[in-house]
Design a binder for these strands. Structure first.
Lengths: 269, 269
DNA sequence: CAGCCGCATTGATCTGAATCAATTTGGCGA
DNA sequence: TCGCCAAATTGATTCAGATCAATGCGGCTG
């Protein structure tokens, strides 16, 4: 840790703290955990390693740091961004869902994000968006415009963001395919495979999953109802493709069978 | 036009031409128009103005140019990218659809792109992608990796690409919302409003649209069938929200009514 | 560890959009 | 200008998944 940054950090944490109080006052849903505050240096450090280029000057490093706001978000709490311009978010710890709100309380989960992910929350236009914690989270938030202005001449940073955005886009397109053209059972299979890739643990031929999201979340992500998701999981269990333990544990026993049921392009490499 | 570039251009066009012949031989679907070849300088110039930074050195400019391949794609012709790594595409002229192929010839249109748009075609993984011309097109294609390597230290270029990718992502998320949570009539209304924004011509209180895509394309984009799209258009016509002229002309007579039927967040700014 | 609450599962019925089928129409070439 | 063909419209029926309803069970609290 660079010693000359300590004083600056303390100042920043003060700023952070007031911003946090401010946020909580404006938004009752955001009830950040006080003890989470100490995570700011750690979270920012992880963010810096992932996104900021290694040879960034200390001054620039500090400027990015002063732009960051830590939000410690308890499970099921949501960050709303009404009226705010678009935000850049880094998941320092935990797991989140990005929810779009359409009319009549019809919500669509647009994406899940896990530790280390970076993503943007669009400005409100035809829909409003919120970020909701699936587990207790430490998030770093930046105003996207301010961040990009600061990164204007830092090509490596822009490149990192571009790569991140491109994979978000790829995932979003795959979701589009699932929602547009797939049956309920295919969607559930696709979901399980994707989660296996992102947060699964390989064990022998199986993949162990500890899902942080509820059946409702899965349903809202796949454009289905909880009942349909549940039925499809039961069918997969009966077919021997998966096993379930408790409410959140799922073992992908037969990944081949899942892939066959996912409606993927045949003979995919 | 910088005079010292002429010789280089001629050389490049030769390269371009052989690449084009090569492409056509490898892929019978790609039957480029010969007379389109002369559009390369013009198309690249437009691309440069949009994406490359103004103060790029001539040498760098030429390097980007040598990476570009012009593909003149006739209406209904498709560019397949099997086995290719991901591509960056600029629409110099015309309109395209980006199609994802899932199993059993179920295709989902992932996005439409129009003159001046830049977008990436992902590498094949669970799905294969193709770019299909809605009208006769001039496209510039780049290997995405090569392009990004070349742009590695050109922050303004990366910034342009990032902005483009971010808006693609926003549009894709909005499509996700539509496919996940909206009824057929809402989807059609959303589609018409979005096309009005992108390629419509305001005339008085109305918006004139000349749709380059067929009902089948609309259906494949919205996750519906042609019949359902047709029925919903008829309903909107009866309600007075739109008028249709011929097969491709649509007048958005009452944008307010369309918005009300689009299932957007109420009291959206 | 007992009891409760909310999530999840399972079952019965309903419905919006798909599918199947028959016309109609617009646009193009002879 | 006519006639043809593909695209679009309109209608009848079917079906996947939503909705409504009841029961089961995991996990947390006292």
């Amino acid at each position: 840790m660079r010693p000359r940054m300590v004083a600056a950090l303390e100042a920043l944490l003060e700023i952070e703290f007031s911003a946090f109080i401010d946020l909580r006052q404006r938004n009752p849903l955001c009830e950040a955990r006080l003890e989470g505050m100490t995570n700011f240096p750690e979270a920012f450090d992880r963010f810096a390693r992932k996104i900021l280029s290694a040879n960034l000057s200390d001054a620039a490093h500090l400027r990015f740091q002063s732009l960051a706001r830590l939000v410690a978000l308890d499970r099921d709490r949501a960050l709303e961004f009404e009226g705010t311009s678009s935000q850049l978010i880094f998941v320092g710890h935990g797991a989140t869902k990005l929810v779009a709100h359409a009319s009549e309380a019809r919500d669509q989960i647009v994406a899940f994000h896990f530790v280390g992910d970076v993503f943007t929350v669009p400005e409100q236009d035809n829909y409003s968006y919120s970020v909701c914690a699936l587990r207790d989270c430490d998030l770093l938030t930046f105003g996207a415009n301010e961040f990009l202005d600061l990164a204007a001449s830092e090509a490596p940073i822009l490149r990192h963001l571009l790569d991140n955005t491109t994979s978000s886009l790829r995932r979003c397109r795959e979701k589009t395919i699932a929602l547009g053209r797939k049956t309920a059972s295919e969607r559930v299979a696709v979901f399980l495979l994707a989660m296996g890739e992102r947060i699964g643990v390989r064990k022998g031929g199986s993949v162990l999953l500890e899902l942080p999201m509820s059946r409702r979340d899965i349903a809202e992500s796949l454009g289905l109802t909880i009942e349909t998701v549940s039925r499809q999981l039961s069918l997969l269990r009966e077919a021997g493709a998966i096993a379930t333990t408790g409410r959140s544990g799922i073992v992908l026993r037969d990944v081949g069978m899942l892939k066959a049921r996912a409606g993927y392009l045949r003979d995919a490499a």
